[in-house]
Amino acid sequence: MKKIFSRPKSLKRTPFHYCPGCGHSILHRIIGEVIDEMNLQERIIGVPPAGCAVLAYFYFDIDMGEASHGRGAALATGMKRALPDRVIFTYQGDGDIAAIGTAETIHAASRGENITTIFVNNGVYGMTGGQMAPTTILGQTTTTSPGGRNERRDGFPINLSEMLAVAKGSAYIERTAVNSPAHILKTKKAIAKAFRVQLEGYGFSLIEVLSPCPTNWKMGSVESCKWIDEVMTAHFPLGVLKDITGDKKDAH
C-alpha cells in the first residue's frame, strides 16, 4: 500500500491540545514538514513562548528550550551565539512578541541576530482567555475591550513586522496566513525560506502568520478564516515586507 500522508517525523505522536479551528495546529505541522524536508531535525532548536504554544515541546520531536514571556529573542540570541551552526527559531504569539517582548525582538533584529522567529498573530491573548493584544484591531471586541478596541482608551494596534522591516539588521520579513490551503502553502514556503536565510547567515528573519482563534473571537472556524481575509488583512496586509537576499525564486 502506498503511503500518501503521514505525520512529519519531527513531530511527536502526541495529539495537539489546541482548540478546534486554531491555527497553531496547522502551523506546527507545516513547521514539522519543513524541518523534515530540509533535514534539520538533528540541528534545529526551538524556543517556545509563554502563551498557547507553550507546550510546543510536547509536539515537536526536536530540542526545545522554553522562554519566559516575551524573552524568546534574547534567549535565542544567547543560544545561537553559543551554537552558531545550529538553526534556532522562536515561536511567539502577538502578546509575547509585540507587547512584553518588543524590546528583545527589535534589538535582536537590529543586531542582525541570525535567528528565525515565527510570529503567530491572532489578535488576542489566547491562553489567558481572550484579552486585548497589541495586535487587536480597532473596534475588535475582547474581554478587556468589551466595547471594541478604542484608540482613545486603548491606543492603536502595532504593526510589528513593518517596524522590524525598518531595522537594519533584519534580512527577511514576510506576513502570511493559515486560513486557506493556498495561504498555508505560502506560509510553508516562507518558513522554509526563513530557515534558509538563517542557514546562509543573512541575519534576522521573521514570518508573521495571521492565525484564526475561533474560541476567543467567538466565531465559527469558517467565519474566522473569512474574517482574516476580509478584516484582519486590511490592517495587516500579507506579503514580503523585506528581503535582502535578492532571491527571486521564492517571491510570491
Partner: peptide, 17 residues
C-alpha cells in the same frame, strides 16, 4: 544587551546550550 531583562535571558540561552 538592550536591558537587564534581555541580558539574563541571553544567559539562559547560552546556558541551555
Amino acid at each position: 544587551a538592550e536591558s537587564e531583562v534581555a541580558s539574563i535571558h541571553m544567559v539562559i540561552g547560552a546556558s541551555m546550550a
